[in-house]
């Protein structure tokens, strides 16, 4: 990809739609499916992942001369793990409820596939500015889909969205709060996105 064509808007567009981490790359699915029981948890998880993703992208890109090519995975790992631990402590101090609810999936951000994909395919081969916007685009794309999934699951399972009641409690289907429900709804979202995109997944 030529540097000239590879501009900021292109990066944002790719992250949000063309190479959306969940819909197209199928990465970072384990927090996506497990944490999105309610919209608020999903949004927190998305924001957390976005923050770690942006920081890792920028730092990998800035340090790409220092990180040896053979051991670059180790470099990404260390950077991502450091930011995850910092974020984990921050969340524990200021949002203890969310930290408690998200549990194991907060430290698991350090091994989220999205971060490694972006570090390998974008940050390691481009300048920090571009990596920043790539991180923002991909992060927003991730957050949007996980929050959408969380909102749909919350409406069907609990009849609420961000805690505001839409459907009476007697008419809810609690199935979607479980893991299989998440898989099925995510499949519907993916199918819809592929339909809009027209034809086969690239």
């Amino acid at each position: 990809m030529k540097e000239k064509k590879d501009n900021i808007f292109r990066r944002l567009y790719y992250g949000l739609w063309k190479e959306n981490p969940i819909l197209v790359l199928c990465l970072g699915l384990c927090p996506t499916l497990a944490v999105s029981t309610t919209a608020a948890y999903a949004l927190t998880m998305g924001a957390f992942t976005t923050a770690v993703l942006i920081l890792t992208n920028v730092f990998v890109s800035a340090l790409k001369k220092i990180i040896p090519k053979e051991q670059r995975l180790l470099g990404y790992l260390l950077l991502a793990a450091s930011f995850t631990v910092a974020g984990q402590l921050f969340l524990k101090a200021y949002f203890p409820d969310f930290s408690e609810a998200l549990g194991i999936f907060i430290p698991l951000t350090a091994v989220n596939g999205v971060i490694y994909d972006r570090a390998e395919r974008c940050a390691y081969v481009s300048n920090p500015g571009l990596a920043l916007f790539d991180g923002i685009g991909t992060g927003i794309g991730y957050t949007f889909i996980i929050t959408l999934l969380g909102a749909i699951r919350e409406i069907i399972a609990f009849g609420t969205i961000f805690g505001i009641r839409l459907i009476p409690a007697d008419y809810t289907i609690s199935f979607t709060a479980l893991a299989p429900g998440a898989c099925i709804i995510l499949a519907f979202i993916m199918a819809l996105a592929n339909k809009i995109r027209g034809g086969h997944r690239s």
Partner: peptide, 13 residues
């Protein structure tokens, strides 16, 4: 995989 939905990335891909 089935109850805790961990490790889904490599599982699906």
């Amino acid at each position: 995989v089935l109850t805790q939905s961990l490790g889904m990335d490599s599982f699906i891909r």
